[in-house]
Computed example of a mutant assay.
Amino acid sequence: MMDADKALELVKSGATLLLLDVPQYTLIGIDTQVFSVGPAFKGIKMIPPGVHFVFYSSSTRDGKEFSPITGFFIDAGYSQVVVRMWDQQEERLIKVPEEEEERYRQAVRSFEFDKHLGPYDLSLYADWKRLSNYITKSTIEQLGFIEMDSCGCLRFQCSGISHVFHVALLMFKPIGGEITVTYEHGMLKNTCKSAMERVLDEQLRNSKFSSPAEKHPKRGCYYTPIPRIIKRKGIESEQLTSLNLDKASTELLETLLVKDYGGSEELLLGELQFAFIAFLMGQSLEAFMQWKSLVSLLLGCTEANHSSCQSTVCKLEELNA
């Protein structure tokens, strides 16, 4: 059992997730841990600084049925207090006004909420680090969150200010936001899917929780597009076919590393982990498709001649060990 002085030190140095007015029986998760909200629950304390994935699922009044999971990444600093309040109408966690948020932060630091905060289970932190060690704040900002309305405009939040750009004029990538399967069935129309994935997509489309496209803007993460074939000018068709059959994954990986990740294998692996966590904890179908594409690409690199490609594949094997 942890002594009182050590616990107090961890409470002061760790981050706190203050969650206000969350209904009883709601499931609240952080990383690999899940809490069932009771009448006194108001959040989680002693969270180690760094990247974390927060997710939740609202419940019926009797706690027998749950909505699809909604999640978001945070980059928690030392002693940081993250405040969210439950929106009863939308059944989701929302930010509070800055002035109000600062009052809550001071209350947390004065231990006014301490008895209502559940402790982060530090014995499980090592498991989380193995799942997320390549994800950084930059990863979250790069992959971000997209909202596209019916007129083809892209919306995102930056420093509390809403921005709208036409897709053709988009110059900046959006920052992080919510991940939920509720809005995803329309995103996968032009994606190659297996028979089981088509069944899942159909179930999602017909789910009572699925949000109609005309009611809500399209949402999604800014995942790196993974091409399935190599296109190259100036070579014979037979050579191109051979290239796609024998060396496709290696060529694509080498191209992606240079073009989309600036030669950084850590960025690629960060996106791989981001997608894995988003579908494992957040139950995102879009994230699953991205994770599958990246893993298929990496495992298909039988002729990874480039040293960075070899290193990336080796690190993937270490992650799976």
Results as ranks from 00 to 15, higher is better:
residue 269 L to A: 03
residue 178 E to N: 12
residue 205 R to C: 03
residue 158 C to T: 11
residue 271 E to D: 07
residue 269 L to P: 03
residue 166 H to L: 01
residue 200 L to D: 08
residue 233 K to Y: 11
residue 272 L to I: 06
residue 155 R to P: 02
residue 240 L to W: 06
residue 192 C to R: 02
residue 221 C to R: 11
residue 159 S to W: 04
residue 217 P to I: 00
residue 247 K to L: 10
residue 250 T to Q: 07
residue 150 S to K: 12
residue 222 Y to N: 15
residue 269 L to F: 02
residue 247 K to M: 07
residue 152 G to P: 08
residue 202 E to A: 13
residue 198 R to P: 01
residue 175 I to V: 14
residue 263 G to I: 06
residue 154 L to P: 01
residue 240 L to T: 05
residue 178 E to W: 08
residue 237 S to L: 10
residue 222 Y to C: 13
residue 170 L to D: 07
residue 216 H to D: 00
residue 238 E to D: 13
residue 207 S to A: 14
residue 199 V to T: 08
residue 232 R to D: 05
residue 182 T to M: 03
residue 163 H to M: 10
residue 218 K to W: 03
residue 162 S to R: 14
residue 219 R to K: 13
residue 172 F to N: 08
residue 192 C to D: 11
residue 268 L to S: 08
residue 243 L to M: 06
residue 219 R to S: 14
residue 167 V to R: 10
residue 251 E to C: 12
residue 189 K to M: 06
residue 258 V to E: 14
residue 161 I to Q: 09
residue 240 L to I: 11
residue 261 Y to T: 09
residue 159 S to T: 07
residue 268 L to V: 12
residue 219 R to F: 04
residue 243 L to S: 02
residue 208 K to T: 09
residue 155 R to I: 05
residue 269 L to E: 09
residue 249 S to C: 15
residue 171 M to N: 12
residue 218 K to C: 03
residue 175 I to F: 11
residue 257 L to R: 09
residue 266 E to L: 03
residue 188 L to A: 10
residue 174 P to W: 02
residue 177 G to I: 03
residue 209 F to K: 03
residue 159 S to N: 12
residue 185 H to S: 02
residue 163 H to I: 11
residue 225 P to K: 08
residue 192 C to S: 05
residue 213 A to T: 01
residue 203 Q to G: 12
residue 238 E to I: 09
residue 167 V to C: 09
residue 220 G to V: 03
residue 160 G to V: 10
residue 199 V to G: 02
residue 209 F to Y: 15
residue 246 D to E: 11
residue 192 C to E: 14
residue 177 G to M: 02
residue 184 E to H: 04
residue 201 D to S: 09
residue 227 P to G: 08
residue 158 C to M: 11
residue 242 S to W: 13
residue 233 K to D: 13
residue 220 G to K: 00
residue 273 Q to N: 05
residue 237 S to V: 08
residue 176 G to T: 07
residue 240 L to P: 02
residue 240 L to G: 04
residue 255 T to C: 09
residue 221 C to H: 13
residue 245 L to A: 10
residue 228 R to K: 15
residue 211 S to L: 00
residue 274 F to K: 03
residue 195 A to C: 02
residue 268 L to C: 09
residue 221 C to E: 13
residue 245 L to M: 11
residue 151 C to K: 11
residue 252 L to I: 15
residue 196 M to G: 01
residue 190 N to G: 12
residue 247 K to Y: 15
residue 209 F to C: 05
residue 157 Q to P: 01
residue 194 S to K: 04
residue 216 H to M: 01
residue 211 S to G: 01
residue 190 N to I: 03
residue 256 L to E: 03
residue 264 S to M: 07
residue 239 Q to S: 04
residue 237 S to A: 15
residue 163 H to S: 08
residue 258 V to W: 08
residue 229 I to K: 10
residue 183 Y to H: 15
residue 160 G to A: 10
residue 173 K to E: 04
residue 187 M to H: 10
residue 161 I to W: 06
residue 159 S to G: 05
residue 258 V to C: 06
residue 174 P to Y: 04
residue 265 E to G: 06
residue 155 R to F: 14
residue 236 E to G: 01
residue 158 C to E: 15
residue 243 L to Y: 01
residue 267 L to Q: 12
residue 189 K to Y: 06
residue 150 S to N: 03
residue 187 M to I: 02
residue 198 R to S: 06
residue 263 G to E: 09
